[in-house]
Computed example of a mutant assay.
Amino acid sequence: MNLYQSLGYLVLGSRLRRMSETFLAEINRIYQNEGIEFEASWFPVFYLLSKNESLSIKELSEQTEVSHPAASQLITNLKNKNIVETSVCTDDGRRQLVQFTQKGKAILDQILPIWEAINTSMMDLAESDAAATQLLPAIAAMENVFRSANLADTISKKLNPKPATDE
């Protein structure tokens, strides 16, 4: 057992970050090897726009569960690469709608088969180990636990337990 495994929940964030960084580096290498100008960090926006003709930055922010400034920064980056464009919403002039440019649509056409290959490859890898098949359900369960309980408060209660009252 390595150091990270022996420390359990104390290093959960570090282990998840390392696993995520490794996974994303491998995925980015696939796009690079295929000669496609695409970064794995763009996936949520590409996926959502592949399912919708256009979305507002607020909708992208809410659906990807990132801050509005983070979503706006990503959209600005993609606009600078001529992958997406924005237009003013006709119903509400304050809303910016995001949609693919022709270049963005061409990239999407190139990456759709890669997404399918990633998905089937990951399912094959997970099925090679019974415990690995539980990864996605376990992540979903932990996300639900974090939504329903405030971790910092839970830890604080362990550090500062309320004294029992005499009745």
Rank of each mutant, 00 (worst) to 15 (best):
1 M>A: 10
1 M>C: 07
2 N>Y: 08
2 N>P: 08
3 L>E: 15
3 L>S: 15
3 L>D: 15
4 Y>N: 12
5 Q>K: 12
7 L>P: 04
8 G>L: 08
9 Y>S: 13
10 L>D: 12
10 L>V: 06
11 V>K: 13
11 V>Q: 12
11 V>C: 14
11 V>D: 05
12 L>N: 11
14 S>T: 14
14 S>G: 15
15 R>T: 12
16 L>R: 06
16 L>W: 06
17 R>H: 12
19 M>K: 04
19 M>N: 10
20 S>A: 12
21 E>V: 11
23 F>K: 14
24 L>N: 11
25 A>V: 03
26 E>H: 14
29 R>I: 00
32 Q>W: 02
34 E>P: 02
34 E>S: 07
35 G>Y: 02
37 E>L: 06
39 E>K: 14
39 E>Y: 08
39 E>R: 14
41 S>T: 10
43 F>S: 09
44 P>M: 03
45 V>L: 07
46 F>M: 05
47 Y>P: 00
48 L>E: 06
49 L>Y: 00
49 L>M: 04
50 S>I: 01
51 K>Q: 10
51 K>Y: 00
52 N>L: 04
53 E>H: 10
54 S>I: 00
55 L>A: 03
55 L>T: 03
55 L>I: 03
56 S>I: 02
58 K>D: 03
58 K>T: 08
59 E>I: 02
61 S>T: 06
61 S>N: 07
61 S>L: 05
63 Q>Y: 07
63 Q>I: 01
65 E>I: 10
65 E>K: 15
66 V>D: 03
69 P>G: 03
70 A>V: 07
71 A>R: 02
72 S>I: 01
72 S>M: 03
74 L>K: 13
78 L>W: 03
80 N>L: 09
82 N>I: 06
83 I>K: 04
83 I>E: 00
87 S>E: 10
89 C>D: 15
90 T>M: 09
91 D>T: 12
92 D>E: 09
92 D>I: 01
94 R>W: 01
95 R>H: 06
95 R>I: 09
96 Q>C: 00
99 Q>S: 13
100 F>I: 01
100 F>L: 02
101 T>C: 06
101 T>A: 03
102 Q>A: 11
102 Q>T: 10
103 K>N: 05
103 K>Q: 06
104 G>D: 08
106 A>G: 01
108 L>H: 04
108 L>T: 01
109 D>K: 15
109 D>V: 01
110 Q>E: 09
111 I>S: 04
112 L>C: 01
117 A>R: 14
118 I>L: 15
118 I>A: 02
119 N>I: 01
122 M>A: 10
123 M>G: 02
124 D>Y: 11
125 L>S: 07
126 A>T: 03
128 S>Y: 00
128 S>K: 12
128 S>V: 01
130 A>E: 11
130 A>S: 14
131 A>K: 13
133 T>R: 09
135 L>C: 07
136 L>A: 12
137 P>M: 05
138 A>D: 11
139 I>T: 10
142 M>A: 13
142 M>V: 10
145 V>I: 15
146 F>R: 15
148 S>L: 13
150 N>A: 09
150 N>V: 06
152 A>Q: 15
152 A>M: 13
153 D>S: 14
153 D>A: 11
155 I>R: 14
156 S>T: 11
156 S>A: 15
157 K>C: 05
158 K>D: 07
158 K>Y: 11
159 L>N: 08
160 N>Q: 12
161 P>Y: 07
162 K>T: 11
165 T>N: 06
166 D>H: 13
166 D>P: 05
167 E>N: 12
